[in-house]
Design a protein around this nucleic acid. Structure first.
Lengths: 242, 242
DNA sequence: GACCGCCCTGAGATCGTGCTGAGAGCTGCC
DNA sequence: GGCAGCTCTCAGCACGATCTCAGGGCGGTC
């Protein structure tokens, strides 16, 4: 598991997104945001998050629906529902759909962080979110198996480790140094070129399955695992900067 | 959920205990109650519960302390804190101590049940595992006996222990270090090669019964116990078309 | 257009991982 | 004591995996 926990913040108000992004980043978490239901769902289905903070009132698809579809697709990421509603029926609904917690607006940031921490702690116990998905690409962490459109892709341990890191941070650029650190370890036994070589191997194997374009080079910065879908969900909203 | 979930209800007011006992029983749960801190702790430390409902204001030992001691003793039963306090600091405290949820009195029974259900659902995965099955392979943990297609397979204690761990985590890769830890103990008296040797022994015996392929090597990662059936069941979720 | 720096790739020497047979130490049983 | 079964180490082998190196392409900048 990566060092920094990754949190997906879903809210339609940009002010809320900004505030949470700043606050949670200050707590050492990596924050990705989405502004509406369909995009939130697309991003959440990658499985590349440790916690999802989900507002209920959303354009396009309500928080309930997003949660429901996530669970239906087998994504078990802990979800913390956030809402202005405080009716008990709503809470019960959310929890029965598989939510892991409930916050009522206006909430205090301290409580929010405590809840998120509690969910993170619990998740680190049964470790290894099972699956990461990027379009047709599936990384099964339990079986250490990768497949594209159902066809298994045979990877060496190193290749797998590199892809795992990239996929677990889908939609974010990962620098070569970060890859060196998380795949090769802190002692930096290998050079940056090794990373390039392994990304090359990966691409060759993925290309052979028709899965080009999944791992992109961001010249001067590093590598980015994404799909057109994800690009749209994250990029158009203007939530990712830098 | 197979068996009836067991819930421990801790509250000093007999009225609350009675009400919860009746209500949760009606929901199909088995309820045990405790009225003060020390007793609650004693009972909870048995680990024989699926959820603990823990009031904070308790005679003898506060709910916080009970929770703290439970976690300190390694009891990981999900705990739902219940309290009249609604100060945010208290919530943060409880969650940081390892609570899994927080309810403020007066709470509605519907919400309570929903929370309990959520915790049960999360935990329900690994219940009722006295007998492990992988296709034709059956591991009877009570008898410490293994059979393939009804035919008994005679294993030495070590061989059995290794297979037990692999089978109990069927569908997930188990590293050699994990096997060393759970079979040989923390002192690591043996080397990794011992694991390889014992997997070798296991395979030889299983192969002789026609049960090859049950224990697979995942190069660079460890060993994986699975069957084509299991692969399909687990894999299909990831392969599902849209 | 010329240069520089970043990135990719093929070749190939080296390294590591995993499997196996042999056998040494131990224990318990006859 | 002698035997049997279990546990575990060791050394050797095969093969795949790893990583460096050198050369070349490509993009950005002046």
């Amino acid at each position: 598991m990566g060092v920094r926990p990754r949190v997906l913040v879903v809210d339609d108000e940009i002010g809320v997104r900004r505030a949470l992004e700043r606050g949670l980043s200050a707590e050492g978490m990596e924050v990705v945001t989405a502004a509406d239901g369909p995009n939130a769902l697309r991003v959440a289905l990658t499985g590349a998050f440790d916690v999802v903070l989900l507002d209920i009132m959303l354009p396009g698809l309500s928080g309930y629906r997003v949660l429901q579809r996530m669970r239906a697709e087998g994504v078990r990421t802990p979800v913390l529902m956030v809402s202005a509603k405080d009716g008990e029926v709503d809470q019960a609904d959310g929890l029965d759909l598989g939510a892991d917690g409930y916050l009522v607006k206006p909430f205090s940031f301290v409580v929010l962080v405590a809840q998120v921490r509690a969910l993170l702690r619990r998740n680190s116990v049964d470790l290894a979110r099972r699956r990461l998905k990027l379009g047709e690409l599936v990384v099964d962490r339990a079986m250490r198996e990768v497949s594209w459109a159902g066809e298994p892709v045979s990877l060496s341990p190193r290749e797998y480790a590199v892809l795992d890191v990239l996929a677990s941070r889908a939609g974010s650029v990962v620098t070569k140094d970060e890859l060196l650190r998380s795949v090769w370890g802190d002692e930096q036994a290998a050079t940056r070129n090794a990373v390039e070589v392994y990304v090359g191997y990966l691409r060759r194997k993925l290309d052979a399955m028709g899965a080009g374009e999944v791992v992109r080079t961001v010249r001067g910065h590093g590598y980015l695992a994404s799909t057109p879908d994800l690009d749209a969900a994250l990029g158009s909203a203007g939530t990712r900067r830098r």
